[in-house]
Amino acid sequence: MHGTVDTNPIDDQAAQWVAREDRGALAPDEVAERDRWLAADRRHFGAYARAHAVYARTGRARALGSADRVPHTRVQGPRPRLQWAMGLAATLCLLALGVHEHSDAGDYHVTHKGEILRVPLADGSAVTLDSGAAVRVHYTDARREITLLRGEALFDVAKNRARPFVVTARDTAVTAVGTSFSVSLNEQRTHGVEVLVREGIVDVATASGAVAPTRLLANHRALANRSHGIRIETVGHDDLDQQLAWREGMLSFNGDTLSVAAAQFLRYSDVRIMIDDPLVGSRRIVGLYSANDPLGFARSVALSLGLEVDQQGNDVWLRTPHNAFHSAPRSLQ
């Protein structure tokens, strides 16, 4: 018997709006009500755009709601066109349809640069893939197995004690029954595998079983790599939300160096932030920025750090004023 997932009420409300829109044009008072809901909280807009992406991906509104979840299936032929305007959701260009492939080894879900995708799974769970992420989903009667092949993903797990939900990333295995957690292979930030628990409890261990599982509670992070094993850290609620800001198409920095931030933006855009001065690259920043606007980010940090911006095609250079007209190009990658 399948369990049910503890869903995010904001995502559920967004799904209901998309389903209502698909049934027919909204009345003027409904449009006003929807727009008030969108304006009430920045998270509402992100959830609404994600819901549009999920509907377009599956071709069925019932894939959006918690009450009527269906397996994520490959749609044959042209996808149905929605009757409502897509302008609002299209402004979040980070949200896209991704790629789905099926083989005997499982279902593969992939996002390319600039894409974020929420995929409902057959058991009522869901996985949200960050830009440039890839997962393999393989379910058996005894286990629900996910392999994170690259990037970062958030897992909202339906409760089923008889059928563990196991995410493997390199030589790290994360086992959950019903919870919400993310797993990241983002080397630039984590230098290994990072597990971040938003709700519930997970066990973190080596995939081989050579090390006894480490219990990880909500608002905790595990950092696993071969040099130091599994290290546990406490994460504040606000910090946790910032870590998962990518779900809303945002990037959050809290004391990160400018070089690290520039590399993060490159995961979402072909516009490259270039730095040729190590002292500039080591400057630390704090803030929340739109992931698909590296130029806006560059201009903002230039203003706050006393730097100058020089855009040359897809390259955006950040330099101190006395170096602004002297170029010794060196890519961040």
Rank of each mutant, 00 (worst) to 15 (best):
A49P: 14
A67G: 15
R42Y: 07
Y48S: 01
R62H: 09
D35R: 09
A61M: 06
G59C: 02
A39N: 05
L38Y: 11
G46S: 14
F45H: 08
L64V: 00
S66N: 11
A53R: 12
Y55Q: 05
A51E: 02
A32N: 10
F45E: 03
A51N: 07
H44W: 01
A39V: 03
A32Y: 00
A56Y: 04
E33G: 06
R60F: 01
A67F: 00
T58N: 12
A39G: 10
A51P: 08
L38N: 10
R57D: 09
Y48E: 04
A61R: 09
R60M: 01
R43C: 00
R34Q: 15
R43S: 02
A51H: 09
D41F: 04
A67Y: 02
R43D: 10
Y48G: 03
H52V: 09
E33H: 07
A53P: 07
A32P: 12
R69F: 01
S66Q: 07
A47Q: 10
R69I: 05
L38P: 15
R34G: 05
F45I: 01
R43Q: 07
D35E: 15
A56C: 12
R42E: 13
S66G: 15
V54L: 14
G65S: 09
D41N: 14
A51I: 01
V54H: 09
S66F: 04
R50D: 06
A32C: 08
R60H: 11
A47G: 00
A56F: 06
G59H: 06
A53N: 00
L64C: 08
A32D: 09
R36W: 01
R57P: 00
A67C: 03
A47R: 07
R34E: 15
G65E: 13
F45K: 06
R42G: 01
D41V: 01
E33Q: 14
A61P: 07
R42P: 14
A40I: 01
A32V: 13
E33S: 09
A51W: 06
R42V: 06
